[in-house]
Design a protein around this nucleic acid. Sequence first.
DNA 1: CAAAGATATCGACTTTTCCCGATATACCAA
DNA 2: TTGGTATATCGGGAAAAGTCGATATCTTTG
Lengths: 83, 83
Amino acid sequence: MLEWLKEPELHFPDQLQHAGFEHGVCVGQIQAKAGLTQSTVSEYLSILQRAGFIEAKRVGQWTYYKRNEGAFEALSKLIQTNL
Amino acid sequence: MLEWLKEPELHFPDQLQHAGFEHGVCVGQIQAKAGLTQSTVSEYLSILQRAGFIEAKRVGQWTYYKRNEGAFEALSKLIQTNL
DNA sequence: CAAAGATATCGACTTTTCCCGATATACCAA
DNA sequence: TTGGTATATCGGGAAAAGTCGATATCTTTG
């Protein structure tokens, strides 16, 4: 999922018609691609959010998730220096 | 454990008398510090080895483990570029 | 070769994680 | 306000990971 969110326009072409990708990708799109249930995907995304790897933005009835690149950079550096 | 192995002389002073740290730290030392059973520590170390994060060197009846810094560097870069 | 010490492997049990269906909540449209 | 759609939360069963004791393997020493 994290890799998908790196290039949303590439992996979620269906969303183009409805909305852009400024806010990220909505749960339903990710769920369809993942082949897991709605509840599983929703929970997974919320875990990633609490961990700081993605950010959520509610727009109407949809929740859009997008990557927080800073977190990946930080993790990469943490491994370099602390681990 | 991975952090301990970064500075063996600091975290395993007991080993100084017996042998140096050229080959790393032996299982018994790590086990004592970890507070887990011998079998658990042995299995854990072998998992880390298979994953490439540490290297094993058998010297007599002892097995010394030391970090493979390249693996950490590689992981760090993998997160930067691929993830 | 036998005994002793260090490490590795095996089988079982416990804890945690994964994933689901059911249900609740939030929002929109009529 | 009512029904429909999107997402979130909850409770439970299945799968995976963690940990242990018992035992096997390897090595040194007598």
